[in-house]
Every structure is written in structure tokens, then in C-alpha cells.
Simulated scan of single mutants.
Amino acid sequence: MSLEERTMLLNELRKVATIDCDPTRRPSRRELLQLAYHHSLPFIGFGFLDNFVMILAGEYIDLTLGAKLGISTMAAAALGNTISDMMGIGSAWYVETLAVRLGAECPPLSKLQMDMFGSRIATNLGRCLGVMLGCLLGMFPLIFISTNETEDTKDNKLPKAEIEKDAG
């Protein structure tokens, strides 16, 4: 067994030794906040990557395939989302590793404590807030996308004769 492996084993044994002897004790507020933080960081990364890639891929598909094949903007967005989801699967390990490096360690709770109602709420709340923040941050490519024409005018351009006919 190498020195690195012994160090990892010792660290894990210390974590187990610090778990309260009473597994029925409710987690403290601090532990619940740490649990929410632990679960939020990876979801910030997932939400960011999901929206970021979806917007870029969807816009590219809309401008290229959309124009050539006549697919709708929503179809281009759906294809962009498909590409984004595939990228999310490929990047899951990297996002989770980065989250651990940022200090997203799970508090030392027993299995029984993790299954308690408060722990489940903290876990899901952390995930929801994380993915929401990540998705909002992932919208930043929209700053660079030109929106001179609205979707209605781009999709529903009428010939000049029809516009004059409708006006008259």
C-alpha cells in the first residue's frame, strides 16, 4: 500500500470516527447548509454547461440547418438541447471533481440521518438552487447574439404586395 493510499484511508477513517454515535440525532442547521452546498456546486456547473452549449449549438443549428432544411427555431433549440445533454454526460466527472476541489464535501452524517426529511429537503433545495443559478449564468452567450429582428418578423416575412394588400 502506497503512502498516498494510506493517507486516503486514514482520512476516510477519521471521517467515520467523527460521525456522532447517535445516528437518530437530527442534523444541525450547519450540517444541512453544508449538505445543500455540497449538492448545489455540481448542479451550478451542470446548469451552466447545459444552457451555454444549448444556446450556442441551437443558434448555430438555427442559422445553418434551419436555413437550409427549413426547420423551425424550436426544432433547432431541441437539437441544441440534445447536443448539450450529450456534453453534460461527458463532462459530469469533471464538474463533480471541480466541485469537490471547491470544498463541496458532504457533512459526516449517517445513512439514517441522510434519509431524514430535513436532509432530503436540504439536498433537493441545494440541487434546485444550483441548477437555477447555473442556468442563469449559462445564458451569458445571449449577450453576443444579435436580436435585431424579432422571431415573428424573421419567420413571417410577407412580400411587399401582401403587406400593402393587408393594409388597404
Rank of each mutant, 00 (worst) to 15 (best):
R26F: 08
E31T: 05
K68R: 13
L98I: 10
F140N: 12
D152C: 07
H39F: 14
G168M: 12
G168E: 13
I163K: 09
T18K: 11
M1L: 11
L79K: 00
K154C: 07
N156K: 08
P42Y: 04
E151A: 14
C128D: 13
I89S: 05
L133E: 01
G168C: 08
P159G: 10
E96I: 15
P159R: 14
R101V: 03
S40L: 10
L65K: 01
M139N: 03
R6I: 05
V95M: 10
I55T: 03
N124Q: 09
E96V: 15
R6T: 04
P141L: 00
L41T: 02
Y94L: 11
A167D: 04
V131R: 02
P27G: 03
R120L: 14
N11C: 02
A77M: 05
R26Y: 08
F46V: 12
L133Q: 01
V95P: 04
V53F: 00
I55D: 00
S110W: 00
Y37E: 05
P141K: 00
G118L: 09
E149K: 13
A161S: 14
G90T: 05
A92W: 00
G90D: 06
L32F: 00
T24S: 12
D62K: 08
R14T: 02
A17M: 11
C106G: 01
T82C: 10
E59L: 06
I143W: 11
R29Q: 12
T123P: 01
L56G: 05
L32A: 01
G88E: 01
D115W: 03
E12H: 03
G80P: 00
G70E: 08
L112M: 09
R14S: 03
Y60P: 00
S2D: 13
T82W: 04
R127Q: 14
K154W: 11
D50R: 04
R6D: 11
S146H: 11
Y60I: 13
M54C: 06
A78M: 06
S2I: 08
I143D: 06
D85G: 12
I121W: 07
D20T: 10
T18I: 08
D166N: 11
A99D: 06
A36S: 13
G58F: 06
S110M: 02
E4S: 15
R29H: 10
G126S: 03
K68Y: 07
E149L: 12
C128M: 14
D152Y: 15
M86Y: 09
T97W: 10
L3M: 11
F43Q: 07
R6L: 14
K157I: 08
R30L: 11
L133S: 06
M1N: 10
